[in-house]
Nucleic acid binder design. Structure first.
Lengths: 340, 340
DNA sequence: TTGAAAGCGCTAACAC
DNA sequence: GTGTTAGCGCTTTCAA
């Protein structure tokens, strides 16, 4: 339906070559001709066929983001913030964004092979890096451009942005300790995620520094969903001995913690303090508003994307490994430890 | 880096054509040859160059979803549910999903022109349809395949799925009326969205049927964000005369309503009842859990996507206009009207 | 300053 | 059954 270069050329009695060069802004086209071409293209509503351009130029002008889905859905504000940031920055710089979803595992790497080898995308964004991450191994091995949100424990050199989870969790522990809490539980994320172990490590270190004892049965592993936070909390509050505070590895689980405790008639902020990690937009609107470690997800997403595009444009990055310091946002879900 | 058809052909001493046909599963290839080809392709890690396929076949095997962003971000559980559904269904059927964001307005239609005329995508998903929606006009006019989540007031024939918002809001009003509420406020979405007017109309009709008076100053228009719900609620509760219940056009605003009221020391479910619309996953984990009109966003997203793919495959749809009946999920944010 | 020709990698019509 | 040829729409040498 829309015209092709051939039609424009025919109408102006020029060759396709000249029209192409005129539109691309090459200097070796007469100014007069250039203007005629540009105007005709405008009038006829010309839009280049990207398949042809991509085939010829061997670049897709697109970046890929494969969401590692754990359930059948990936409805998680963390991911929507990410998509927002990646999408906006990619669009701003003239790149398409290709989204796919796949659960971690065998099929995941096959997906990466498809996306990369098929020339669908020029580069990829990786998130929630894992221990001995097979995705990183694959991309590095094939020398395919990518930038990660999250570092790695592999001895591989690749660009990434990450938030210091050890430090962030330390902030949470110190905050609670200063409020007099001595019995603090920790809800971790899946152990294979790099950030999970870092945050948990931060918890352990900070607890030790505060001379607080970490109770084994108060360290539980969830899957980062509200329902998981909910379920683990029921388990946690089941025994006779309760923690007075819970730190969750992310906000979604923290929301689950609050809901479960409240269902048992427990006052959050008084009887039980809760701290999250992420500071998703809803954290401020929770009841009570959630104290949480703030990481600028949206901004990290744009950073990661713009770094990737720099790489794709052949630039070298000033800083290949960026570590950001998070900060604690204190709201009403935390308060002084209850007296016994 | 990955091999092309030419390499496979050379290695097996076949023509590119035969290799292509063997891989495509054409019957006019000797079984023996087919096996050799398939195995070689497997061994060599062949992945077709999609740009070439797309150019040749004149189809992108991709669908587009342009998110109408109202702010700089589109972090909204409604959209993440949608992306989840669209992405999963598209992936399942072998389609790529191209995501872009653009605020409604001039540039929006230009974006649609780019996506469609450039052959980036074969079809599009449209959401949050508007009055005299220029996107629908554009797509219908250009005969470009699309399916919408939301009907239209234009006299145009196109496939869509929608939820009966008039009925849904009626359920909310009736629920509150049965609880004895007579002073009900309504927080609407932007007036240009079709569903906003339908839901508001449902509100007006149901109120009339219950012989309840609609107070002009208790009908406010928000932008569907929590912060908007928050701000409007402060305004609503500012005067001397309060409603005893608020119905919000979506859950996010309802969350804002609850937070704002609670900040004023108001007990939700006792002093003020709140009803939302959508039933996003977090509604159940709100405090108190939110009474809301449930619409199956994820399922609608997969329906819309599978309908679009059917259209792209040349099938005619059994049902081009699907209306779904929502249901009310009663939780703890609503309760008997307080006695005065 | 412009045009002719080649080719990106693939599929499809048509021979053989 | 298999190969030859042409062509999708574009960019890019290379000549003129």
């Amino acid at each position: 339906m829309p015209p092709r270069l051939k039609e424009i050329a025919a109408r102006l009695d020029l060759s396709v070559t000249t029209v192409s060069r005129a539109l691309a802004g090459y200097p070796d086209v007469a100014e007069k001709t250039r203007q005629r071409v540009v105007q005709a293209a405008q009038e006829m509503g010309y839009v280049p066929n990207v398949a042809a351009q991509r085939l010829q130029q061997k670049r897709a002008n697109a970046i890929g983001f494969i969401i590692p889905t754990f359930g059948p859905r990936f409805s998680d504000p963390f991911f929507s913030e990410l998509i927002a940031g990646i999408g906006n920055e990619a669009g701003r710089q003239g790149y398409d964004l290709l989204i796919s979803t796949v659960p971690p595992g065998e099929r995941e790497i096959e997906m990466y092979r498809q996306q990369t080898f098929s020339h669908r995308v020029d580069g990829m964004i990786l998130v929630r890096t894992r221990h001995q991450d097979p995705r990183i191994a694959f991309l590095v091995e094939n020398n395919f451009p990518f930038v990660a949100f999250g570092g790695s424990d592999q001895n591989l050199d690749f660009p990434f942005v990450d938030v210091d989870g050890v430090y962030g969790t330390r902030l949470a522990v110190e905050h609670l300790a200063h409020l007099g809490h001595r019995h603090i539980a920790y809800l971790s994320g899946p152990d294979n995620l790099l950030f999970s172990t870092l945050r948990r490590q931060g918890f352990a270190e900070a607890m030790a520094d505060q001379d607080l004892i970490v109770e084994k049965q108060w360290i539980l592993e969830g899957d980062l969903t509200e329902s998981s936070g909910h379920a683990l909390t029921k388990q946690l509050l089941n025994g006779t001995d309760h923690p007075t505070a819970v730190i969750a590895a992310n906000d979604l689980m923290a929301m689950g913690v609050m809901a479960a405790a409240q269902a048992l008639g427990i006052q959050i902020g008084q009887e039980l303090s809760v701290v999250g990690f992420d500071d998703i937009p809803l954290a401020a609107y929770a009841n009570p508003p959630l104290t949480t470690v703030h990481q600028p997800i949206y901004r990290i997403a744009t950073m990661v994307t713009s770094m990737l595009i720099q790489v794709l444009n052949g630039h070298t990055l000033a800083e290949r490994k960026k570590w950001l310091q998070p900060n604690l946002v204190v709201r009403q879900s935390t308060g002084p430890a209850p007296a016994f």
